[in-house]
């Protein structure tokens, strides 16, 4: 139950976000499944720090998105941007700002750096998978951009 409820909320949030981003009806269930899956992975992992958990959850979401994009023949970003939203460290950003307003400098620095690390972990996760997929794509497809002039 403790695992179920947050994943359900993540799923609901992704449904709402899919509509905000004008995702078509047919794609909404798969998109939201990605969001719930990412959060489930985050909750199941057991590390002392949040940062590797965020990284692995993002990698799982990215791989899921790449697979689903190929299955449904739609752009990867459709799944990726929506599914990764529950991981966005909104809370960290808010508390950083709140400590800043209150003038609690050490807490501000601590929370700010932690939030930045989380954002970095997400960025790194997306980057790793996207780069690998791109390498694979270039190996497979004819090189459109390197067409010879003469």
């Amino acid at each position: 139950m403790e695992l179920m409820m947050p994943c359900l909320y993540a799923f609901l949030a992704c449904i709402a976000f899919s509509i905000v981003y004008h995702v078509g009806w047919k794609r909404i269930p798969l998109t939201c499944l990605g969001g719930a899956l990412g959060w489930l992975v985050y909750l199941l992992l057991d590390f002392p720090s949040d940062v590797p958990k965020y990284f692995i959850a993002t990698v799982v979401i990215s791989v899921y998105s790449e697979i689903m994009a190929r299955v449904c023949k739609v752009p990867v970003t459709l799944f990726l941007t929506t599914a990764v939203l529950p991981l966005v460290p909104g809370g960290g950003m808010y508390y950083t700002m709140e400590y800043c307003v209150r003038g609690e400098t050490s807490l501000f620095m601590e929370t700010g750096l932690h939030t930045l690390a989380l954002a970095g972990a997400i960025a790194l996760g997306i980057m790793t998978v996207s780069s690998l997929v791109r390498m694979w794509k270039v190996m497979k497809a004819p090189k459109l951009f390197l067409k010879k002039r003469y």
Binding site: A16, I19, V20
Partner: peptide, 17 residues
């Protein structure tokens, strides 16, 4: 529907957090 979606984002993310 966009209004409902924005309301839904607020609702579910508040529960989520």
């Amino acid at each position: 529907m966009m209004v409902v979606a924005f309301a839904g984002v607020g609702f579910s993310f508040t529960l989520f957090f």
